[in-house]
Design a protein around this nucleic acid. Structure first.
Lengths: 143, 143
DNA sequence: TTCTCTGCAAACGCTTTGCACGGAT
DNA sequence: ATCCGTGCAAAGCGTTTGCAGAGAA
């Protein structure tokens, strides 16, 4: 699945197709994730969507994102040790987190094909690759 | 620095060389990390070292590992979202975590040299690459 | 009615902080 | 006397769980 192919209009069908009852909250949460480029945390989603849905609770966001993960339509990113970020792009790619501004960027990478399924005799199910540093915007702004 | 070059005898000198006062607890914690192959969590270190040092507290382990990280002699691994693991091998390498037995293996990898310093105009300070799946031992044992 | 979704409140687990005691210089 | 390391207890914070009320079928 490619994030750019998920339109807001198609979000509802997309949830249904993946066996998810498209409630109002679930739809909003998925839409927010699909159009976000910054791989938001639960807290960010909560503060953002609370504007539209004042009754929204974090519990619902946690429930929903765990459901989405089980259904395979989002992946959880473990970049910080203490909080989870979420990405609706489930294709294999890397992430770059700017330690100055906190933004998380997608980075296209080609993984060596010989480690696609096995590495050192271990069977590989998931691959996670992320980098930290100073992003191009922050480099510009500080000279 | 290469983990295999750190002998237990040399640990004290190694701490001093890196500007760390080699107290008994710090020495024991570093030694444990240096000879461990499983990238232990604070909890694992605590239970292991408590046998030798019954008065040891987790606070001391947290304090010590944070100090070690600041001094650059260990790195924190964010593989699970909820707990930190520690590695005294500060050379660039990948990790494989077995979701069956929980063991974490070192994996030598060559990163594409073109992403050593910059990627998509972003300045890269840290690179983290880890995989999850079933390790060779668990594959054998379950057939 | 029955089943599912939502959301408050409490619990949980890892990590950090506050602080006092003890040892070394 | 001063400084630093240690460790108990409490706080902090992200996440999960228990549960009751609301809503859909």
């Amino acid at each position: 699945m490619n994030k750019s192919k998920i339109t807001i209009e198609g979000a509802k069908d997309y949830l249904v197709k993946n066996g998810i009852n498209p409630s109002y909250q679930r739809l909003k949460i998925f839409e927010h994730l699909a159009k976000s480029t910054s791989h938001p945390t639960v807290d960010i989603i909560y503060h953002e969507l609370s504007k539209e849905i004042p009754t929204l609770s974090k519990t619902t966001i946690y429930n929903t994102l765990n459901l989405f993960q089980r259904k395979g339509i989002v992946i959880g990113l473990t970049i910080e040790d203490n909080k989870l970020r979420y990405d609706s792009n489930t294709e294999l790619h890397a992430h770059f987190k700017c330690t100055k501004c906190g933004e998380v960027y997608d980075i296209p990478v080609e993984f060596p094909p010989e480690m696609n399924n096995k590495v050192n005799e271990h069977i590989v199910d998931e691959r996670h690759f992320y980098m930290k540093g100073t992003c191009r915007n922050c480099t510009k702004n500080t000279g």
